[in-house]
Design a binder for these strands. Structure first.
Lengths: 189, 189
DNA sequence: GCTGTTAAAGGACATTTGTCAAAAATTTGG
DNA sequence: CCAAATTTTTGACAAATGTCCTTTAACAGC
């Protein structure tokens, strides 16, 4: 239970068996079905989810009803509506499942409690958040410096496994183009 | 000295006078001239900079020699090449000054030391990094869901002061469009 | 206050991307 | 294994954005 989470944490700080059990006791195990909505728009967001198995997406629906995918979340990733979760405000995003999913859910209270009880976990979350920040910066650089074709090829090399699990129309949404444009790209080969 | 920094920190955690002096002792005060390069590409990045006064930009030059602006940094902001700074690797970005600048420089060793000595500072950096992450997510959402005109108007409302201090060609670069395109936008009022 | 330099705006045209409609291919559930 | 639903591809055209070039405007240093 949670070996992968332990592996992820131990890339940054080391834990004894007891410490890891203690960490894990702050999480709740949950399961979701394909197509199930994990975070509804306008809901308060109770949890941040560590994905043990499955695939989710974080998206926002604009005034014209178009869905824009901000992030995918697969195994060993963390998923939530960050703004709503951390500020205890209502969700502006939707999180749902592209596949049946198994997660470890961490409430904000438990996260803060855990950080106070075990300082290296706060260090872990800081390092992890910095890594996330850097990843988003790279994605922004990609938007300002690359066209659709280059962004698609970049995504292919970054997450080769994703393409087999996600419909192309969603890849298009993540890249900020229409599915028609994605379908016409010269994928390089 | 550093009142604004203290105000920023105290929005998240409270500090005694002694504690703030202690925090400040981990920083070095530095000054830069307009056009001066603060972080050179390929250099190791010693510091993260809290901007006391002035205006900087973080950019990357692509293979065609085009400059892409990833971020501006004005008063009360933090500026560095995050990836290079936190991973102790060589800079892939350039940080330079659009105006004479005054900063407080924090080395990574001092940052980590400070976090160990005063846990609430680690909490501060965590909250601050999360806020940065959320801001980048919003910028990405803007790229995937808005055209150049909408992105420009969004920037106008987000940082109205920036326009008076930054040439439009740099705003264009930040928005991921050419200066010609920016110049033709219907700024909508 | 000049003068050289840099920044901004505009025209003409090419390229990329979006939109709408339809056809083809694939997946899903029974 | 089949029928319905979903996803992907393609065509024709419109709109947005990029490129190249010229003109105009603003600014910096002397």
């Amino acid at each position: 239970m949670g070996i992968e989470l332990r592996r992820q944490i131990e890339k940054i700080v080391s834990l004894t068996d007891d410490e890891f059990e203690f960490v894990l006791s702050h999480f709740q195990s949950k399961k979701f079905k394909k197509h199930q909505i994990v975070i509804h728009e306008e809901d308060y967001v109770q949890y941040e989810y560590y994905v043990v198995k499955g695939l989710m997406k974080i998206s926002r629906v604009d005034i014209d009803g178009k869905e824009h995918i901000i992030q995918f979340g697969m195994e060993d990733w963390w998923v939530t509506d960050s703004q709503a979760y951390h500020n205890r405000t209502k969700a502006t995003m939707i999180v749902d499942c592209l596949e049946d999913a198994e997660v470890l859910a961490l409430s904000l209270d438990n996260k803060e409690k855990l950080c106070r009880e075990l300082q290296k976990m706060e260090y872990f979350f800081l390092k992890k958040t910095i890594a996330g920040y850097i990843a988003l910066q790279k994605r922004i650089l990609c938007f300002i410096s690359s066209n659709a074709n280059e962004r698609y090829n970049n995504l292919l090399t970054l997450y080769p496994g994703l393409m087999q699990r996600v419909p192309k129309s969603m890849i298009a949404s993540y890249l900020g183009v229409t599915r028609e444009t994605l379908s016409r790209l010269n994928t390089g080969m």
